[in-house]
């Protein structure tokens, strides 16, 4: 990232990018949902402003700004920046979701060890030695540092055999 790349601006184009249209649609839909939900919550009570008043205002802002944005895009479309590395996004998001799903079952040490091994050995192709050292430090090392050094409890496995051996 250089100074030049940091301050680069997207170029102008002639058509509204599909991703921009989807984005505007999603924001408008969220705004409408909030408006409807806020009315159900109650805008005003006998005691004064109700729980729905403030969200209602925000829903209104979201819907109106989405409309203004759409009009701006139709008049002068902006080109969205180049796409992301989908492989990276999928690998990171899916591995994180699996880690979160199994962390309470397998415990922090085992699940984080496997997570780090996946990223270091499988994804990045690092050597077995460096992968094992880093994965052990990041799982077992972090567990003991947080549990005993900082008094912050990370989860242990819900399975008795793993639990009994301290995992």
């Amino acid at each position: 990232m250089t100074t030049k790349s940091v301050i680069a601006r997207p170029e102008r184009t002639t058509r509204v990018a599909p991703s921009v249209l989807v984005g505007i649609g999603v924001f408008a839909a969220v705004g409408v949902y909030v408006l409807v939900n806020s009315i159900e919550l109650g805008l005003w009570t006998s005691l004064g402003p109700g729980p729905g008043l403030f969200p209602f205002a925000m829903g209104g802002v979201l819907v109106s700004m989405s409309i203004v944005w759409l009009l701006q895009e139709l008049r002068r479309p902006t080109e969205t920046p180049e796409g992301v590395d989908r492989g990276l996004v999928i690998a990171v998001v899916v591995s994180l979701a699996i880690l979160a799903a199994v962390m309470d079952l397998l415990g922090f040490q085992l699940s984080m060890f496997l997570f780090l091994m996946y990223h270091l050995k499988l994804r990045s192709g690092r050597t077995w030695t460096s992968s094992l050292i880093i994965a052990l430090a990041g799982s077992v090392g972090a567990f003991y540092a947080f549990n005993y050094g900082l008094n912050v409890a990370l989860p242990v496995s819900a399975f008795p055999p793993l639990n009994l051996i301290g995992l």
Binding site: V92, L96, L99, A100, M103, M112, F115, L116, H119, L120, R123, S124, R126, S130, I134, G138, A142, F146, V152, L154, P155
Partner: peptide, 19 residues
């Protein structure tokens, strides 16, 4: 190397969010 940094940053993110 960036691959090690990424793995370690992810580790801290998970701990940060969980705790």
């Amino acid at each position: 190397p960036p691959s090690i940094l990424t793995a370690l940053i992810l580790l801290f993110m998970v701990i940060g969010a969980y705790t």
